[in-house]
Amino acid sequence: MLDKIGIAKRIAKEVKNGYYVNLGIGIPTLVANYVCKDIEVEFQSENGVLGMGPFPFEGEEDADLINAGKQTITTLEGASFFDSATSFSMIRGKHVQLTILGAMEVSHNGDIANWKIPGYMVKGMGGAMDLVASAENIIVAMMHTNKKGESKLLKSCSLPLTGVGCVKRVVTNLAVLEVSIDGFKLLERAPGVTVETIQNATEGHLIVDGEVPEMDI
């Protein structure tokens, strides 16, 4: 079974040379730390920066330079700044190749719910609805089950949706799954995790086709 860093490390392998990538808050943010150093990748933050770098050194924080999580950041060589409409033109116009974000629920037809729990304070969707409605390649990073042990990979989402039929791939602490027409196709198992464990933790339709390899992290 993977921890959050393990999930980030496995997703980092999906980041390819020449990609512009948008990272959501939480586990997705960690992905930047594990992307192969030999490839050229730029990270986009929807508040208006391409070429995002690491956090600044203490004393070098700039109130005018933050990411979408409102954290102070730095930029790398070749970075650029732009307004919010331009930022979402990059996203809606499919110029960003990969979007990685967290979720509360994903259904086996690719619906995603990650912005609202009825009865709790609703903070808003931020840029998540724009991202999931437009991105060609969306990877969801999340734990396979919630704190109560209930599956987050469902037949249909119970929470209000963020987007419909948009998720392509899910990486959890237990497995890598692809969203196909017929359901969640099991691609890889986390180290030491059996197909049976994954099956038991997946409420949505799980397709197990032959021998399922263990992840290589």
């Binding site: 929807e46 307004d83 919010s84 409409a85 930022s87 979402f88 996203i91 809606r92 619906d111 969707m125 931020g126 840029g127 998540a128 609805m129 724009d130 409605a133 437009s134 949706l161 987007g163 419909v164 039929g165």
Partner: peptide, 26 residues
């Protein structure tokens, strides 16, 4: 949605009465 917010501002700036966006469909 954040991109819709930005674009509804930009539409007002640019003289478009409305815009179509995929964000939030469904």
């Amino acid at each position: 949605p954040q991109g819709t917010l930005a674009e509804r501002c930009r539409a007002a700036q640019a003289g478009f009465p409305a815009i179509y966006t995929p964000a939030g469909y469904g």
